[in-house]
Design a protein around this nucleic acid. Sequence first.
DNA 1: ATGTATGCAAACCATTTGCAATGAC
DNA 2: GTCATTGCAAATGGTTTGCATACAT
Lengths: 161, 161
Amino acid sequence: MDREDKIRETVRQKFSDYLSEKKCRKTPERFAILNIIYSEQRHFDVDSLFEALARRSFRVSRATLYNTIQLLLECNLIQKHQFGKNISVYERSFNNDYHHHLICTSCGKIREYRNMELKTAISGKKIKNFKVTHYSLYVYGLCGSCLRGMKKANHKGKSNP
Amino acid sequence: MDREDKIRETVRQKFSDYLSEKKCRKTPERFAILNIIYSEQRHFDVDSLFEALARRSFRVSRATLYNTIQLLLECNLIQKHQFGKNISVYERSFNNDYHHHLICTSCGKIREYRNMELKTAISGKKIKNFKVTHYSLYVYGLCGSCLRGMKKANHKGKSNP
DNA sequence: ATGTATGCAAACCATTTGCAATGAC
DNA sequence: GTCATTGCAAATGGTTTGCATACAT
């Protein structure tokens, strides 16, 4: 059993425990969804999740996807992001070496940014009257290719449209 | 002229400059919206902005609100947040002593959290191939009153519903 | 005079909801 | 057998868009 399998096993157990605790049923749909999430790429939205399941011939309704996502959020197995667009993006959060997100305000591209110092600085803070479970740091700005594009445009005497 | 008036004056000028640069028209609607934003409470959504304008008998369409908000985002006079709900919340960003946001995952309440050390740690980072304009740090967890509520519920032997 | 910006209403689309059928317990 | 969960389809609601009119330049 490789490392990834081990993680899938662990989160399955955690989810199962959470469902028991909440007296919710352990349906195959719920576990299939969790399994896909911990098998495919880290960032996903409801549509890509739907398609990933379909690729493995597992058909679930959107309603069930939203329902299950809600449960997974509650037990901190996934995390929700909204990077400016009107669409929610999710990310598995168990065993996730902490990273932050760089968001290009010009092209919308998301880049991950690992920085242990920052992680430590942020998660080390004790806040009065607030029990922290997790955090998100979004850094907005211009990515390399947009920067270069702008410079070129400026040389031609143009402003960005 | 008090400090707040001075700020409104400055952002008006900045906005005006931006509109000139982009060859956009300086309509009364645009300046009225900016002015309200820098007069009322820091967090607002499109609806509360609409109502605030109405209270001063200034009627603008939603379309214009969205249009103007877009311009203000572009020139960094406001900042957009999406705190988990499917609604965008905005906040003025000029002369904003940097604060972070604490979000209660149980009741949804937002609290501001000022911490100079964190601000310095985050904005001091130089990132390769990325020109930072601003950032948002969202800290999720349980607020004081939800924590107390849960403790009480647990004592009665209940789990949260 | 010109063409951008506005207001209105319709369109859009992610997400939510209601309900009958299914299946976990 | 019971009742939570599913799938479906319709509803919701924030945001966007198309177009005729108004108005900044």
